[in-house]
């Protein structure tokens, strides 16, 4: 018998990262060496919760800056493909970013600069987590519950959970794993979602789809 899953939500407030702005690629490299890991996390992962107009071409801020401010498309592509969730920890992620920047600096005849006003601003965020007072009692309720969840709640349980949990997995899978094995298809469905390149709206739609499909197949509807 599964304990009910308590739905939490979160709110972010963005703050300056306490690192000087980078005006060129060499400065970016130097700042990435020393910036707090929370800055890396923010620029790779918390971008999902920020005000953006459209579906951005690149998911992390370093790639966006390389493209828009340095006009270096090759560098943007190399940085843009980094999936931060494939690294064991943030130091490994930092090393990968530094490797790519160092290679690019080696290739280029001169250091690319950003225009004044387009410097890279290092940021981080404070996340406040709060209890919504709502529970999910049965695995079969999951798609409906996801449908009613705010985007930030979905972010907290499905994306941010990977930073919080030892197994680096989402909270729904962790909850379902504590059951008697009947929810195996549901866990597989959740873990099959390649979420990093989805917006939160797209992620919601995708999760509803895959969990409904898994429940239908497993006859748990």
């Amino acid at each position: 018998m599964l304990e009910p899953f308590r739905i939490h939500d979160c709110a972010l407030i963005v703050r300056m990262g306490g690192v000087p702005d980078a005006m060129n690629l060499r400065e970016l490299r130097d700042r990435v060496v020393t910036c707090p890991p929370e800055c890396l996390y923010h620029h790779f992962c918390e971008t999902l919760l920020r005000a953006t107009f459209d579906d951005p071409e690149f998911r992390n801020d370093f790639a966006v800056w390389a493209s828009r401010a340095l006009h270096d498309r090759a560098l943007a592509e190399q940085l843009g493909v980094i999936d931060p969730y494939t690294f064991d920890d943030r130091e490994a992620l930092r090393a990968e970013v530094l490797d790519i920047i160092a290679d690019r600096l080696h290739e280029l005849p001169m250091v690319p600069w950003a225009k004044r006003g387009e410097e890279f601003n290092f940021m981080r965020a404070v996340t406040v987590v709060f209890d919504t007072g709502h529970d999910i009692t049965e695995p079969s309720d999951l798609p409906g519950a996801i449908e009613r969840m705010t985007r930030s709640s979905l972010y907290y349980h499905f994306v941010e959970a990977r930073r919080r949990t030892d197994g680096g997995t989402d909270d729904f899978s962790t909850w379902l794993s504590a059951g008697d094995g009947e929810a195996k298809a549901l866990i597989q469905a959740l873990q099959s979602v390649d979420f990093y390149f989805l917006t939160l709206g797209e992620l919601k739609t995708k999760l509803i789809q895959v969990t409904r499909r898994a429940l239908n197949k497993g006859g748990q509807r």
Binding site: A11, E38, A125, V126, V128, V129, D131, R164
Partner: peptide, 24 residues
């Protein structure tokens, strides 16, 4: 509503000395 949410989050953050991850 977004603006108000950020003011509330900021106050909660300051109240708890700005640890990066806080429970309200």
């Amino acid at each position: 509503t977004r603006h108000l949410r950020e003011y509330l989050t900021l106050m909660l953050g300051l109240k708890q000395e700005l640890r990066d991850h806080l429970a309200a």
